[in-house]
Design a protein around this nucleic acid. Structure first.
Lengths: 120, 120
DNA sequence: TTGACATGTTATAATTTTATAACATGATTG
DNA sequence: CAATCATGTTATAAAATTATAACATGTCAA
């Protein structure tokens, strides 16, 4: 799986509100699939499980089997990667544009604070 | 359109590599639709236009018509919002877990640097 | 061990997304 | 003005996603 496949999977996983809700539900600690279903009464149990498997494929959820329960843990590391490559640089671009520094707002490089470093 | 609709659209827009490529292509300045098509030879022109309209719906691209050309500008502000609500807090969660501070790694609040502030 | 329980699996319908094709519009240019 | 060019529109096929249903598996507890 290429790095772009990984980012595809990640953004797609984050692209459904139910899945983001699930992440919020497990951010303070793991939850069982059953308790997640209870917290999402609008969704069928199967649908919740499908969303969990999407999150798991994206590496955002790690499942731990304990007896007949499945405890779903958050792993936010992939989000750290996406922040580093995409969200961070583009968010900086937005701030730079607001500050009227549009010309040097190139998302790829952290060009804002490093403007004094003149080698390239 | 609710805030969750907005985040849905945003993450979905970022969830296709061709669209992320387009963002990278216009990050240093606007480009015409034609030059974007040239830069993405694997994609049909109609497909590129569909991707552009997805990006436009998500608020990431603003089109400016000049004569018979369409100049596609990046607007990274929505990415700043997504960073603030989702990516930033969860990336902080990942770092906190790596630092062994898992117990207080609650993505919603910036609980890491503010650990000395004891009111809640 | 039997029955309830939590979860998993397979199949399928409905919807959305992605990629093209065919045709249309308005602008530039010779 | 006619031809070309850049883009827009509508329709459609293929693929992926989302939501359910029906059935299966393994676990716990009386």
């Amino acid at each position: 799986m290429s790095i772009e496949d990984k980012f595809d999977a990640l953004f797609k996983a984050l692209g459904h509100r139910a899945r983001r809700q699930i992440l919020d539900l497990i951010k303070d600690g793991p939850k069982t699939t059953g308790s997640l279903c209870d917290a999402l009464p609008d969704l069928d149990r199967c649908t919740v499980m499908q969303h969990l498997s999407v999150l798991e494929s994206a590496g955002l959820v790690v499942a731990e089997r304990r007896g007949r329960e499945r405890w779903n843990h958050l792993d936010a590391l992939p989000i750290h990667d996406v922040q580093k490559r995409w969200i961070g640089p583009y968010a900086a671009h937005a701030v730079a544009v607001l500050d009227g520094l549009q010309a040097l707002a190139a998302p790829e490089a952290p060009a804002l604070e490093a403007a004094d470093k003149s080698d390239d």
